[in-house]
Design a protein around this nucleic acid. Structure first.
Lengths: 194, 194
DNA sequence: TGTACATCAGTGAACGCGCGTTCACTGATGTAC
DNA sequence: TGTACATCAGTGAACGCGCGTTCACTGATGTAC
């Protein structure tokens, strides 16, 4: 039956949020429309009243996940950001993780729509890191921007590597610790250089 | 019909190699047993004469891909390694890419068997980078090893981010260039510090 | 303000298709005598 | 060295299952009068 406009928007958001969690946990190919709709509290048939295709949901889920993450992150200082990103908690809690880390590999194989959402998401990250370092949302020089991109690449790479190591392996923790130390030192060295 | 022992080994390797290429291109969930067997020149039914399950093939494919990569990489100097890893070619040619970059996200969701192969593969990378920097296969200090892990994390993160940006976006090239510069400078700064 | 009607989100069955895995069968290979 | 037989990799049909997507239907919502 038809529902109120307000409810429609709420339901759509519920689907997107659920998808964003499940995709991060199991990958885009690892979750079906029916899984998502069921988890969101609906039957699968209604999905296409909200989205043209699964691809469209994938893009919406990415955007939503990056947006939510920005709200929790912007304004934090650089040490807090690094410690949070390379924490055991972030490594182990895939459902709420940064999409760049849990869906980066998957997005590389997605349609352009998803990649656009992804690119926007990582630009947000660059801006947040810049703010954390220099209190300016846009880096003042290309050198500065290059460094920021390198920092974020290290964060993303480190947590992906850690997650792909066996549950009880030494590496699983070592990669997080090593990257934390390495990144902190890298930032310090570059500060001194100025 | 039964075939010679020699041929059996050859056929198995053919399956593993084909899987290694297809998995890197489309992800573990994006390729079926039938796809792989067909591409390798067989019918799908014979698959279970070689492997107990798809999981077992996944692990074998990871090991094989890392091994092949080692043969092409070990002995190269650090600049060559960085330029190759962050090249347009490596970004765009998924089938022959480093599994840490093309399958890192996927392996995080795989069974232990695959993660073990992955961990072994990245240890090989740490060793190759150590050799490229200091001519010693094992880092001489934990500080050195931490730095190496950080370098590799930056390489992996950078290329994953670049691949997930839209085909014609500025970011797709910028991330590679920025990370190349950032990583080169990082290594230089750490050398000077000593 | 009340009534008749068009709209459209949610339901659940159905579509064709591909998945991982199993199975009976084939016939060349390798082995026992 | 020759022969009879067990082995086992490759074949292709079949298993149950889940996928993305479509569809006819329902009935509350929103609109036109």
């Amino acid at each position: 039956m038809k529902i109120s406009e307000e409810q429609r928007v709420l339901n759509r958001q519920k689907i997107v949020d659920t998808a964003a969690r499940l995709f991060r946990l199991k990958g885009f190919d690892g979750v079906g429309i029916a899984d998502i709709m069921k988890e969101a509290g609906f039957t699968h048939g209604g999905f296409y009243n909200h989205f043209k295709s699964k691809d469209e949901l994938v893009a919406a889920a990415l955007s939503s996940a990056f947006d939510k993450l920005e709200k929790e992150t912007r304004g934090k200082d650089i040490t807090a950001i690094i410690n949070r990103y390379l924490s055991h908690n972030h490594r182990d809690d895939l459902t709420e993780s940064c999409p760049a880390s849990s869906l980066g590999g998957d997005t590389a194989r997605q349609a352009v729509l998803a990649k656009e959402a992804f690119a926007e998401g990582i630009e947000t990250w660059f801006s947040m890191i810049s703010e954390a370092l220099n209190n300016e949302a846009t880096p003042s020089s290309s050198e500065h921007r290059n460094a920021i991109i390198g920092y974020f690449a290290k964060l993303v790479g480190a947590i992906i590597l850690a997650r792909s190591c066996p549950p009880d392996s030494k590496l699983r923790n070592e990669i997080l610790n090593a990257s934390k130390l390495s990144l902190t030192e890298e930032i310090t060295l570059r500060l001194k250089k100025r």
